[in-house]
Amino acid sequence: MFESLVRFVREQYRTNEFIPLHAPVFAGHERQYVSDTIESTFVSSVGAYVDRFERDIATYTTSPRAVATVNGTAALHIALQLAGVRTGELVITQPLTFVATCNAIAYCNAEPVFVDVDRHTLGLSPKALAAWLEEHAHLGDDGLCRTKMDGRVVRACVPMHTFGHPADLDGLVAVCSAWKLALVEDAAESLGSLYKGQHTGTFGLLGTLSFNGNKIITTGGGGMILSGEALATRAKHLTTTAKKPHPFEYVHDELGYNYRLPNLNAALGCAQLEQLEEFVANKRELAARYAEHLKGSDLQFVSEPPECRSNYWLNAVVCEDREQRDALLKASNAQGVMTRPIWALMNHLSMYASSLKGELANAEWLEARVVNLPSSVVQRSLA
Results as ranks from 00 to 15, higher is better:
147 T>L: 11
126 P>S: 00
108 C>L: 12
162 T>D: 01
162 T>I: 13
183 L>A: 03
173 V>F: 01
87 T>Q: 09
157 C>F: 04
171 G>H: 08
143 G>H: 02
99 V>P: 07
91 V>N: 06
152 R>T: 15
104 A>P: 12
117 V>D: 10
114 F>E: 09
150 D>L: 03
87 T>P: 00
112 P>S: 11
102 C>W: 13
107 Y>K: 12
167 A>G: 14
106 A>M: 10
143 G>Q: 03
121 T>C: 05
99 V>W: 04
138 H>I: 12
181 L>C: 08
163 F>R: 05
133 L>V: 05
178 A>N: 11
142 D>V: 07
153 V>S: 09
96 L>T: 01
141 D>Q: 12
143 G>M: 02
97 T>F: 01
180 K>R: 15
88 G>A: 08
187 A>P: 03
158 V>G: 11
136 H>C: 03
104 A>C: 12
96 L>H: 12
187 A>E: 02
90 L>Q: 11
159 P>E: 02
95 P>S: 15
185 E>M: 01
117 V>C: 14
98 F>I: 07
175 V>K: 04
167 A>R: 10
157 C>A: 11
90 L>K: 13
116 D>Q: 00
126 P>T: 00
108 C>R: 15
181 L>D: 06
159 P>Y: 06
165 H>N: 13
155 R>E: 10
161 H>G: 06
107 Y>S: 11
179 W>T: 04
146 R>F: 06
155 R>N: 09
90 L>N: 12
96 L>M: 09
173 V>E: 14
149 M>C: 11
168 D>T: 04
151 G>Y: 09
152 R>Y: 09
169 L>T: 05
188 A>L: 04
103 N>G: 08
124 L>S: 04
91 V>M: 07
128 A>Y: 05
177 S>I: 00
103 N>C: 10
135 E>C: 06
134 E>W: 02
108 C>E: 13
93 T>F: 06
115 V>T: 10
115 V>E: 11
92 I>A: 13
121 T>S: 09
169 L>G: 03
138 H>T: 15
156 A>C: 03
100 A>S: 14
180 K>Q: 14
114 F>L: 07
90 L>E: 12
170 D>H: 09
136 H>W: 02
161 H>S: 06
152 R>W: 10
